[in-house]
């Protein structure tokens, strides 16, 4: 079981290595002459105005929350997608009921304007 995944770990290790290597290369060879202007946040050459991490629109949270919910629903669909042939009609009905409930949430979110931007 675990052997099956071994190549994945190898490639993961390699990927990490590559990523770190690139960063290290840049750090070793790149010159370092920081000045105050250079290390201040970039704002098209203007003097930075206000804090960098301002409160952002609540929309982003909404999107995140909606994503989590629907993503989980997708998780439920995944195994079903593999086995739905064996489950036949009853399984199909169950999934349709499941998706209908999901769609209620979707319609609700739509109607409430959660999907609108600005």
């Amino acid at each position: 079981m675990i052997e099956h995944y071994l190549p994945l770990f190898v490639i993961l290790g390699l990927a990490v290595f590559v990523g770190v290597l690139v960063v290290v290369l840049g750090t070793i060879f790149g010159p370092k002459r920081p000045t105050e202007r250079k290390s201040s946040p970039y704002e098209s050459g203007m003097v930075p105005y206000g804090p960098g991490r301002r409160r952002m629109s609540v929309r982003y949270y909404l999107v995140a929350v909606l994503f989590i919910l629907f993503d989980i629903e997708v998780i439920f669909v995944l195994p079903w997608a593999v086995t739905f042939r064996d489950l036949g009609m009853p399984g199909l009905w169950l999934m349709i009921v499941f998706l209908l409930v999901l769609e209620v949430a979707y319609v609700y979110a739509w109607k409430k304007g959660a999907l609108e931007w600005e």
Binding site: V101, V104, V107, Y108, K111, K112
Partner: peptide, 9 residues
Amino acid sequence: GVLLLLVDL
């Protein structure tokens, strides 16, 4: 309850 959520819209 689910229906009500819709109807309420």
